[in-house]
């Protein structure tokens, strides 16, 4: 079942067409990376899902229920962490969670129990200071705690790691990984290493449209190139290989590359073993998200 579906979403800001018919399906219990450049329309999409912004066209459903702008009853299924979460800074972390629990309609006991669990999870259990003095990382962690308070079916995080240092980023990613059994996670980002670390599914957003979408592994294998790299010990082996396989390309002093359609990989391997050529490395080039992203963006 899909936790979130978006069909043909369009949104203009004056003359600027931000979303040009976006389609997206977020499967249940996935960690979904929503990838796009700055200004690609990630935040606009998320705000529309939350009913905070009115789309010009299109339909959104959350847990099978249609999202209606202004009257956001579907928000009871959603936990939301904005890119820069803002809180009532005169409260401390547990007071803020109590406030959230109260307005969400959780019972006092439930709010207390859940707040303690979540503050422990995000490492703010012993923090008694008011939010006014919190660092960015602490605010993001509190943001995840408040978003998970009412056990949402869908957790939406808008660039949760963008403004954080490496330690803060790791903490947030670890928390998102830890909650994946409880909820479906949709998070937008342009930090591709974060996506590779935790995501099960991804979608690339470019110029207001989703251009690639699916399981991370499947997408990677679709985009897998048939390129190989051979690194030999000395230049002598390079010359021997080049004489037998003329399409091998020299990319370094002792590095050669070739594609599957130029020479058969097993023929090359066979030649190396029968001639006992000393090689340092034979590698099939793995596609990186970055190379895929660049390819998609430049298309």
């Amino acid at each position: 079942m899909d936790m979130l579906t978006i069909k043909n979403l369009k949104k203009n800001f004056k003359d600027k067409e931000v979303l040009k018919g976006l389609d997206l399906c977020v499967p249940e219990k996935s960690i979904f990376g929503f990838i796009g450049k700055n200004g690609a329309g990630k935040t606009t999409t998320m705000k529309t899902v939350l009913g905070l912004m009115k789309p010009d066209e299109g339909e959104i459903t959350v847990a099978g229920k249609k999202v209606v702008f202004g009257q956001t009853s579907t928000n009871r299924y959603i936990g939301y962490l904005p890119d820069v979460p803002e809180y009532y800074s005169f409260m401390n972390a547990s007071e803020y969670l109590r406030f959230c629990g109260d307005i969400t309609g959780l019972s006092k006991e439930e709010t207390k129990k859940r707040s303690e669990e979540l503050l422990e999870l995000v490492g703010l259990k012993d923090e008694k200071h008011r939010i006014k003095g919190f660092s960015r990382g602490m605010k993001q962690r509190l943001g995840i705690a408040q978003a998970l308070l009412n056990k949402p079916k869908l957790l939406i995080c808008d660039e949760p790691t963008s403004a954080l240092d490496p330690v803060g980023r790791k903490e947030i990613l670890d928390i998102l990984l830890a909650v994946k059994d409880e909820t479906t996670v949709l998070f937008s980002t342009h930090i591709l290493s974060d996506v590779e670390r935790i995501c099960t599914d991804i979608a690339f957003l470019n110029e207001g449209r989703v251009v690639i979408q699916g399981k991370l592994g499947e997408i990677k294998s679709t985009y897998r190139t048939d390129e190989y790299i051979i690194e030999t010990e000395t230049e002598k082996e390079v010359a021997i290989l080049k004489s037998s396989f003329p399409h091998l390309q020299l990319t370094g002093r002792t590095t050669l590359t070739f594609k599957e359609n130029q020479h058969d990989f097993y023929d090359v391997m066979h030649f190396i073993t029968t001639n006992k050529l000393p090689v340092l490395k034979i590698e099939r080039v793995e596609p990186t998200l970055e190379s895929m992203f660049m390819e998609v963006v430049q298309k």
Binding site: T72, N75, P82, V84, P85, E86, C100, T104, Q146
Partner: peptide, 15 residues
């Protein structure tokens, strides 16, 4: 200006 209402509204608080 601060954006503090966003979280409260996304928790289902009626406007």
């Amino acid at each position: 200006q601060k954006g503090t209402l966003v979280l409260a509204l996304t928790k289902g608080l009626k406007r």
